[in-house]
Nucleic acid binder design. Structure first.
Lengths: 228, 228
DNA sequence: ACCATTTCTTGAACGTGTTCAAAAGATGGG
DNA sequence: CCCATCTTTTGAACACGTTCAAGAAATGGT
């Protein structure tokens, strides 16, 4: 289960590690997660099964590499969107749509390993401590999205909105995973139509009648964060 | 994989079937889903492994029985709540809280098999065609909750609100599965505080400014339903 | 009573993810 | 150069979910 300290890796070890990750990626992409066996990955990488387990605690851990790569690709694509677009809704739609773009080639694969990420104890779970860095990076992206936009947000909401937008993205991912339409066209439709709604909700958040609810929601989020 | 038609079951077969389900429930409850093996279930039930697979296509299918039982228990508890409470928020909080009550003893077990339910292709997925009856029963429950309450809902929303409340419950279940606080106290807090928010949102739905958004949301839901 | 057909039951076998003791290789101090 | 120690690698073995050919038991028509 234990894995060598990444800081102290000999070049040879690093080479073996990469060979295993690359082989896994190739096979996952070609045959899907379930149909790719650890034996096949080891053979493809030119090592023994046990050696793969020396570097990766489980088959699941091999997916983390894929996960990281996706996150990086999305961050790049999102940066390009944010450099180009200035309005809140264009920025939001661009960021969400670019996630769909980078993830599209992996839809089937993603559906197969989604069950692993869903398990509460899994390190791949978006709520796990292991994925906290990725989660915070993603929330920070939505903060940038917001800061550089023309949106006028109720002050109370400003602090919590990035996390709420991240939750929106999680919802989108959930929808996408279950989306069986060709090219996941339904998810794209959903995004295109939900962004204006969010935009209007944010605008409404400053209205006196609505502000009470906003405060409630913000208060609840604060309490839940403090509790654990 | 094929399983005998439930309509045409001899008493003997039914007895064997029950023995397997009961053994599985006992062991699941005692040792959790993952640590309970099909061999142990078969031994406990006094049959062979192959026989268990004659009645249940997979280990996952054995969970369906647990699932159904939970649903039935919740429906009963919810009925008692709806007979007692008349205001919308009391009914909603009662129904959600009673789900937590009936599910509480199985929190650990539920977390373990949640990953199976999360896989899009799984029959246990709340969005699968196999669980459509359970899903529709649950949505119908929320329709009853609404109809018998004092809530004045915008007409456009009335049709979609039961499904939205069902989605709220799905969100609660998700939160609950990940909730590691003792007795899942955080989820209870979340429910207690989110119900008044929903209540206010529903009231707000009739306001002229908000009505536009409500129409958008309802329109989006209709479109997504029509698409597949 | 007999056979044909269907229903039910068995246990060995397969392929899988994972573990582990042991070996091989690398490193560094004397 | 040699030994001790640490890192890396191996492949056999384990436990599991699942399948399947074969047999046993029930059923029903003649």
């Amino acid at each position: 289960m234990d894995v060598p300290d990444p800081a102290a890796r000999s070049p040879k070890a690093e080479q073996t590690r990469r060979a295993i990750v690359d082989a896994a990626m190739r096979l996952f992409r070609g045959s899907g997660y379930d149909r790719t066996t650890m034996r096949a990955i080891a053979t493809e990488a030119g090592v023994s099964v046990g050696n793969a387990y020396y570097y990766f605690g489980s088959k699941e851990h091999l997916v983390q590499a894929f996960y990281d790569q996706l996150q990086t690709e999305h961050a790049d694509a999102a940066d390009r969107v944010l450099a180009r677009e200035k309005t809140f809704s264009a920025r939001l739609e661009g960021v969400l749509a670019s996630w769909l773009d980078v993830a599209a080639p992996h839809h089937e694969f993603a559906g197969q390993f989604f069950k692993n990420a869903a398990e509460p104890t899994s390190p791949l779970s978006p709520f796990s401590t292991e994925s906290a860095p990725a989660r915070e990076a993603s929330i920070a992206l939505f903060a940038t999205l917001l800061d550089g936009s023309d949106a006028k947000v109720a002050p109370a909401l400003r602090r919590e909105l990035p996390e709420l937008l991240w939750l929106l993205q999680m919802g989108m991912v959930l929808f996408w995973v279950y989306d069986q339409s060709p090219g996941q066209e339904r998810t794209r439709t959903m995004v295109r139509r939900i962004v204006p709604i969010v935009d209007r909700l944010v605008k409404l958040s400053r209205m006196p009648v609505v502000r009470g609810i906003v405060d409630d929601v913000v208060g609840l989020m604060g309490e839940l964060r403090a509790a654990p």
